[in-house]
Nucleic acid binder design. Sequence first.
DNA 1: ACCTGAACACCGTTCAAGT
DNA 2: ACCTGAACACCGTTCAAGT
Lengths: 210, 210
Amino acid sequence: MNNTKRPYHHGKLRQALVDMAVTVAEETGKDIISVREVARRLGVSSGAPFRHFPNRESLMTAVAEEATMRLRLRVERDLLAAPPEPLARLKTLGRSFIQWALHNPTQFKLVSSRRLFEFDSSASLPVHFDAVRQITLKLVTQAQEAGELPTGPLPEFALALRALAYGLARMQVDGQLPQWQVDVNQAEATLISSLNLIVDGLRPVRPHPK
Amino acid sequence: MNNTKRPYHHGKLRQALVDMAVTVAEETGKDIISVREVARRLGVSSGAPFRHFPNRESLMTAVAEEATMRLRLRVERDLLAAPPEPLARLKTLGRSFIQWALHNPTQFKLVSSRRLFEFDSSASLPVHFDAVRQITLKLVTQAQEAGELPTGPLPEFALALRALAYGLARMQVDGQLPQWQVDVNQAEATLISSLNLIVDGLRPVRPHPK
DNA sequence: ACCTGAACACCGTTCAAGT
DNA sequence: ACCTGAACACCGTTCAAGT
C-alpha cells in the first residue's frame, strides 16, 4: 500500500515494463500490446519505455525471453518427477508443453508465432529453445534404442513429435477446438489423450522384447 | 493498360479490396494489413473501404473466407487424383494441407490464428472448415476399418493427425524450422516426410491381413 | 448508390527540457 | 542517469459533402 506520490524516478521500470506487458497481453488475449498502455498503467509517460527499450520489438523480445525460459524450466522440472522409461518421459514432455501453452496462452502465441520480435537478435531465446529441443532429441533416441518407437531418421521423428504437441496446443489457443467438438472444459485432457493416442500407436515393426 | 483518369466510381471496389488485402499480406508477410494502405494502392480515399466493410475485421473475414475455400478446393482436388487406400488418401490430405500452407503462408496464418476476424460471424467459414474436417474423419474411420491404423476413439485420433499436419506447417510459417536444422530449401519435403514417418509408424496391435 | 477528405482518437517513436 | 511531454507521422473509423 504505497500511497505516497510517485517519485520522478521509477527505479525498476525495465522489469516493471516486461511484467506489465505480460499482464496486459494475458488480460486482453492479444500478443500485440500497446507500449503507451503499458506506460499508462505504470503511471509513467509515453516516452519512458524508450529509455529502456529502443522500440516495441525489443520489449517484446524481453517478454519472449522470459516466457521461453519459464517454459524450459517447467519442462525440466516436470521431467525430474517423471518415470525412467524414455517413451513415458517423452509423453511427460509433451504434456508439460501443452499444459504450459494452455495456462499461458498469449505468451505461448507470442513466443511461437515470432511475429513481434527477432528470434536471432536475442542471446537467450535460442539457448532456451534449443535446451527443450535437445531433450526431445535425446528422449526420441533413447525410446528408439529401447524399441519403444519405430526406427526412423532422428531429426524428422523428433520434429514430427514436437509438431504434434505444438499443433495440438495451437489449435486450442487459436480457438479451433470448438469446431472439433471438443468440450471447452476438457480441452487439456482431450489434447493430452490425443497426443498419447499417437505416441502409443507408434510401434516398431518387431515388437520390442518384454 | 487503362491510362484514362480514374472514374469517381471504382465499380468493383469490394472484390478489389479483398484481392489487394491478400496481395499486401503475402507481400509483407504480415497478416495484419493497413486498410489505408490497401485503399492507397487502389487509388481510393481512406474512407472508401468502409462503404463496403463496416470495419477492418470484416474485411479480414472476407479474406479468410476466400482463403479457407481455396484450401478446401485444393484438398478436394488433390484427393480426386489420390490412390484408393484410406491411409494413402490420408497422407495425401496431409500433404495438400501442408503444401497449401507453405505456398500461402500469410493467408494460412490468418485463417488458422483467427486473430483478426470472428470465425463464427461468417456463414461460409465454418462450412469450408468443416468440409475438410469431415474428410479427415471419414478417412481415419476407413483406415481404421481397413486395419491400416490402430483402433482408438475417432475424434481424438483425427484431431491428433490434423494437429500433426497443422503443427508441421505452422513451425515452417512461424520460422521455427531453422532451429530444427531443416534446410530452408527442403522444408516442404522434410515436413511431408516427417508426417509420413508418423502415419506409417502407426500400426494396429495385430498386423492387418495382407 | 458510391466516393471524397477533413476530422477524431488513437498509435510508436523522437527529443529538448526537466529532476 | 532517468523521466516528461510536446511533436511527428502514422492508424482505424466517422460523416458531411460531393458525383
